[in-house]
C-alpha cells in the first residue's frame, strides 16, 4: 500500500523521532510512505476566520500533489493534520474559499476541489491496516505497561470535519495501545488543551494545563502518556518531572512493539 506523506516542518527538526519511528513502523507494516517531493509549512494553525485565504494555499498545494499522484495523503503531526484536513473540507464545501484559492493557484496551473483523502497516521493504522493485523505483527508486546492516550485538541476537533473519532469519548489510541499489548488507561483530561502555542509568550499557562493533565493521568494509573503532537509533547514533557508520568510519541511505542526501534 502506497501513500503520499506530509511530514511538516517540526518533524524535520525538533520532532525527528516522531517521524523516524513513524516511517520505520510503517515499513515494518508493509506501508510505503512517499514523502511529497515538495511541500511547504501547513501554517501551524488552521485560521478560525472565514476570510483568510493565503494561509490555506500551502495545504491545497500538498493536497493537489497527492491527488495528482493518485494516493491518499497521510499526516503524522496533529497540527498539520488538523490544518490540512480542515482546508480539504473547505475545498469540498465552502464556495467562498474554493473560488478564491483556485484563483490564486491558477497561475501555478492547479485546480483543486477537495478530491484527496486525508488520513492521519492513526487512521492509517486503524482503517487501512487494522488493529487486529497490527496485533499479529507485534514482536515485543508492551506487556504490563499502563499507557494513557493524550489526544489534545487537534486530532478530534472540530469533530464534524476531523471525523476521526468521538470527540468526547475517543478510542482510537486506546485501541492501538491494547493492540500493542499494553493496558490503556482512560483519563478525562486526555482531550483537554496542553496550552499550545501560548507557551512562547507565557509559560505559566501550559504549566498549569500540563499539571492538570499529568496529575489526572497519574491518578488514573497511567505510567506513560502518548501523543501525536510535537507541541503537546513539548508542553507536557517540560512539566512532567516529578509527576511519575513519562511522555512519549505514539510512534516510538509502535516501533518498539513491532521490534524496529533502533538499539533494541
Amino acid at each position: 500500500m502506497k501513500y503520499s506523506y506530509f511530514p511538516g516542518c517540526t518533524l524535520k527538526n525538533k520532532a525527528q523521532e516522531l517521524d523516524r519511528y513513524g516511517r520505520d513502523a510503517a515499513a515494518a507494516l508493509g506501508i510505503e510512505l512517499e514523502e511529497l517531493p515538495q511541500w511547504q509549512c501547513c501554517g501551524g494553525v488552521y485560521p478560525l476566520s472565514h476570510d483568510e485565504i493565503a494561509i490555506k494555499l500551502s495545504s491545497v498545494r500538498a493536497l493537489a500533489a497527492a491527488r495528482d499522484d493518485g494516493t491518499a495523503l497521510v499526516t503524522l503531526c496533529s497540527a498539520c493534520h488538523n490544518v490540512i484536513k480542515q482546508v480539504n473540507h473547505d475545498m469540498q464545501t465552502d464556495d467562498y474559499v474554493i473560488t478564491r484559492v483556485n484563483n490564486y493557484l491558477a497561475e501555478d496551473g492547479i485546480a483543486y476541489n477537495g478530491e484527496t483523502r486525508v488520513l492521519h497516521y492513526l487512521e492509517l493504522l486503524r482503517d487501512e491496516i487494522g488493529f487486529d493485523e497490527i496485533k499479529q505483527k507485534v514482536a515485543m508486546p508492551l506487556k504490563g505497561q499502563k499507557i494513557g492516550a493524550y489526544y489534545g485538541c487537534l486530532l478530534l476537533r472540530p469533530s464534524g470535519v476531523m471525523a476521526m473519532d468521538d470527540p468526547e469519548h475517543p478510542t482510537i489510541m486506546e485501541d492501538l495501545i491494547a493492540a500493542l499489548g499494553a493496558q490503556p488507561v482512560v483519563y478525562a483530561q486526555r482531550n483537554e488543551c496542553c496550552g499550545g502555542y501560548l507557551t512562547l509568550e507565557d509559560e505559566s499557562i501550559p504549566k498549569k494545563r500540563a499539571a492538570a493533565i499529568l496529575e489526572n493521568a497519574r491518578a488514573q494509573g497511567a505510567e506513560t502518556i502518548i501523543t501525536a503532537c510535537p507541541l503537546c509533547y513539548y508542553n507536557l514533557k517540560k512539566h512532567a518531572d516529578g509527576t511519575g508520568v513519562e511522555v512519549k510519541y505514539f510512534t516510538e511505542l509502535l516501533a518498539r512493539a513491532l521490534g524496529v526501534k533502533e538499539g533494541e
Binding site: 517540526t10 525538533k14 501551524g44 494553525v45 499550545g196 509568550e201 513539548y234
Partner: peptide, 21 residues
C-alpha cells in the same frame, strides 16, 4: 522579539502558530 523567547527544545510548530495568530 522571537529570539529572546526561544527555548532550544521548542518545536517550530509553536513559533509558526504564534506568528500566524
Amino acid at each position: 522579539d522571537i529570539p529572546a523567547l526561544l527555548d532550544p527544545e521548542l518545536p517550530q510548530q509553536a513559533i509558526v502558530s504564534a506568528m500566524r495568530k
